[in-house]
Write a protein that binds this DNA or RNA. Structure first.
Lengths: 283, 283
DNA sequence: GCAAATTTGTTCGTATGTATT
DNA sequence: CAATACATACGAACAAATTTG
């Protein structure tokens, strides 16, 4: 008992069983009572071991049912750099839909929820507006294969609605807001900057994405600030992606395409580096 | 007791104190015994409350000392897209160093640790080599302001060492490997693809970065595959960054520069969206 | 430099509540 | 409704890390 706590040793044993494949994803672990017998430990100690594995993201417990080895989901890959063909920003509008279908998946999304809000904090700073300046907010929930996948909110300075009033309509703008703004107001998007961070989800996000309440699974928060020909920010899009089902790709210069299709074996081994990758030993 | 568990209500109360600033970052919480008096709960219940806050990343406990409100570190921002001036890839070599000093910080790194390895899994797939093909691995530990900041390993097909033997030397290649390979072998890097994922750290990583053992703080794993003029992958660089101190930026098209300097107030509000950002309410 | 006091960590036991089958 | 399985809550004792005197 001097070496390592009992609960950690139990956790290690179970972990090995999971990583060796003896316990498969989705499979149910023995009940607490059974484990208690197996390891000759008290129930609380068994629970500590399971809690440890839970915090490592290896198992999840469901009240009344049992503890299960977590299934890893097939990640969706969003290309952030602009499409070399269309020049359109990655992960948005038509580009988004084509990226999804390229990966043999089905995308859907809620109709945009449009609100007038006051810009605060990061929103105001990024749009270079005064704190409290009015902005148009267009919010959408997105699903892939009927699973909640991302939450996206775009903010536009209120002024834009004067000449481009369809921004206020709670329905999709088929040709995309970028082209719409170019055609109506002559405001052309000439570039954008994506800012990627990771943080724990808030309550809304945890609920929508079905994430554990305790913040074990983090979310990406991607801020895309788009600039017009005058160099002024014309739009800020904030997208939330759970880290357990999303990955990003950035292309620069000439690069070969990514093999398409969910079952392309090449892609699979590229996209799922779940286990430690081949790096030199630290220390 | 029907409403919400006691330990959660206690956690909520403390959380409010933290978020309202009543408890400041770095400050010590009352001891378990004191809290036990304050909330009239058993020590185990108090501990459950603290455990909850820990898993949310709000506090950390130090044996023999107490529980403390976590200090948020000033994040470092890595630009992944190529530098518009030099055309060099973001976050590498000279570009990396200049990015660090632009943010008023001091970068240092260990001498490269060079090894011959066999390519397995993701490494083989990305370099388009057979499983087990020999590769040169160059590994470096990087620090910013003397804090461990990232772990980087580059893999090169073994063939490259034939004409470019300095790849095998355990010392920095001052002019950068990209230029070195171009000058010696005529292999020019014409583009790269970054693949960004997030996962729990392994033991080595947790130790090097001083992360809690339980995997609460995730790491980014960024795979950069660089391609030469023939379209073949010439290099794979895998970099590990803790998510609690790293953010990424991707630029596309014409975008204004990011305000420089660690104390630039604009940058601060851009880079630290710790609290929930202004998105429409979910549900 | 050491011993005592403080503080969190681990482990047991027990009882009761809640969710699911 | 009963049985099963996990969740919450209390109490108690000892161990380990750290600070204090």
């Amino acid at each position: 008992m001097a070496e390592q706590p009992i609960y950690r040793r139990i956790a290690e044993t179970v972990r090995d069983q999971i990583e060796s494949g003896k316990l498969e994803p989705g499979q149910k672990l023995p009940t607490e009572t059974k484990l208690r017998g197996e390891y000759d430990a008290s129930r609380n100690t068994i629970r500590d071991a399971i809690k440890w594995l839970t915090s490592l993201g290896l198992v999840e417990t469901r009240p009344g049912q049992g503890t299960f080895v977590v299934k890893k989901v097939d990640p969706f890959i969003t290309t952030l750099s602009a499409d070399t063909g269309t020049g359109l920003g990655g992960g948005e509008g038509a580009t988004y839909l084509s990226q999804v279908s390229e990966q043999d998946r089905v995308a859907s999304s809620s109709p945009p929820q449009v609100e007038m809000q006051k810009a605060v904090g990061p929103v105001a700073a990024r749009l270079q507006l005064e704190e409290g300046a009015p902005v148009i907010s267009r919010h959408q929930k997105r699903y892939i294969d009927n699973t909640p996948w991302s939450l996206q909110t775009s903010f536009y300075p209120r002024e834009l609605a004067k000449g481009a009033d369809r921004l206020l309509e709670p329905s999709d703008i088929a040709e995309g807001t970028v082209r719409y703004l170019a055609e109506t107001l002559g405001i052309r998007q000439v570039g954008y900057r994506d800012w990627i961070t990771v943080r724990t989800p808030n309550d809304n996000e945890a609920e929508f994405f079905n994430l554990p309440e305790d913040g074990r699974v983090a979310v990406y928060e991607v801020f895309r600030t788009a600039y017009d020909q005058t160099g002024a920010p014309m739009r800020l899009t904030v997208t939330i992606f759970p880290t357990d089902r999303n990955q990003f790709v950035v292309n620069d210069g000439q690069v070969p395409p990514i093999p398409a299709g969910r079952d392309a074996s090449t892609k699979k081994s590229l996209a799922s580096p779940r286990q430690a990758s081949q790096t030199a030993l630290a220390s």
